[in-house]
Design a protein around this nucleic acid. Structure first.
Lengths: 264, 264
DNA sequence: ACCCACAACT
DNA sequence: AGTTGTGGGT
């Protein structure tokens, strides 16, 4: 028996909106620890890891670990039927092949329940090792989203370079080039606008903007984003979910090509 | 000679927006009683009945009963040219095959007139008998609209079931099922949020959501909607138009199919 | 009710 | 990538 009650239902709605464009089907794993998901995007390039800790729920009952395969598009359709102020409860009976989403309006005058078929999805659950990163950039999530969007109108990839002065986002395309530099600034009075760089050694890596732009769908979940970079490691783009956990996106860097790609 | 002057012109605009998606051409009937319309939707499944009583107009002159056939899309185009605060006057000369819409801006600084060709439309005017209904649900129109919209993302039809506890809207589709229950609640201090159920006997009927969603286009006309249900009778979805009359939509229930539709 | 932003479609 | 339509916020 599984029963998770989340008073701030809009949070679950936002989580779905963050993931559904990247991943079609995924297993949600429930244990005493919390509600989590790990999945590759449909083209097997990026990886999403979500964690909502049990302590963040108003009620969390999970008798035994279960893995529920869901079509995220369908799940998203149902969650869209919840009001932003609704309380959301996710229920599943043991051995059932369905999951139920229950929405309670704040006044309790409207109670909705939506039942969805679960699916069998085989997914290898990758252990993601904790790693030391060469550089960790923490900046306003809206600013990062704006940068990725802006750069993608010029080029397809972004080079993220971190020095101790700041972080530089660069691209190059048919119509020209673009460089956006964000200086470290720890505005003490406005922590929501700070850009903080922890750097052990300079790093410069190239990523596909298409994926970065998908990741920024999570922007409504947190005002800050953390970007962790190491050469030879996938970048981690993390949005903390207040009081509950995080959503993390992993993306392998592109191997830097020679300047002149046509050279033999 | 016909001359109807309506200071609250936005009301006529809203009326057109409510009907034009459902009905292409219709006769507007004018008599001493008022300005009315009765028409089947283009696929002859639903029926719209509109009444704007003469007393609701600031000036109402209708020398003899006339019926004016109009293309509602074209009429709507013209009415869209009226400002929301404009005074709208509808004029037609005896024997003329045109109708004129005149719009006066609140300051009287701008006077527009639009003339439109009338058309010959043969329509049988159905007498709609007053009926006793098994159940009458009165609820906030915005809530009803939201429910119809939400359910249509899951299924094509809605089962509306009324018991004395409340009214339940259910659907079923490929991705799952949905049930939304609204409890009766007569919040005395907020009559605009009340849900009131008058029930003589329980009733459960099935309707096409496509039509329900068309009906909810009338939501801007009234904060409340009334849904009258009887088995074997068309449902009536009514929006009162303040001080003037109403717009009513009729829709026959779907005959409940056997559980197993493939049975011989 | 109007304006802005995000999402889907071309 | 641009445009149009829809949904949410002020």
């Amino acid at each position: 028996m599984l029963e998770l009650r989340l008073v701030q239902g809009s949070l679950m709605k936002k989580v779905m909106e963050s993931i559904k464009d990247l991943v079609n089907d995924a297993n949600f794993d429930c244990s005493a620890t919390g509600f989590s998901l790990q999945a590759m995007d449909s083209s097997h390039v990026a990886l999403v890891a979500l964690l909502l800790r049990s302590e963040g729920f108003e009620h969390y009952r999970c008798d035994r670990n279960i893995s529920m395969g869901m079509n995220l598009n369908n799940m998203s359709k149902m969650l869209k039927c919840a009001g932003n102020d609704d309380i959301i409860t996710i229920k599943a009976d043991d051995g059932s092949d369905t999951v139920t989403f229950m929405f309670e309006s704040p006044t309790q005058d409207k109670i909705s329940d939506f039942e969805m078929k679960l699916m069998d999805i085989d997914s290898e659950h990758l252990g993601i090792p904790e790693a030391e990163y060469h550089a960790i950039v923490r900046m306003p999530s809206a600013e990062f989203a704006r940068i990725c969007k802006d750069l993608s109108s010029i080029g397809d990839t972004v080079v993220i370079s971190v020095t101790k002065e700041g972080v530089k986002f660069s691209t190059r395309g048919d119509i020209g080039t673009a460089n956006i530099v964000c200086r470290q600034n720890t505005t003490v009075d406005k922590p929501e606008e700070a850009t903080i760089i922890e750097m052990n050694e300079p790093v410069s890596l190239t990523f596909a903007l298409r994926y970065m732009n998908s990741f920024t769908k999570a922007t409504p979940l947190s005002s800050m984003v953390t970007i962790s970079l190491s050469s030879e490691l996938p970048v981690v783009v993390e949005y903390k979910i207040a009081e509950m956990g995080y959503i993390r996106f992993y993306l392998a860097p592109k191997i830097e090509e020679d300047e002149d790609e046509t050279r033999p």
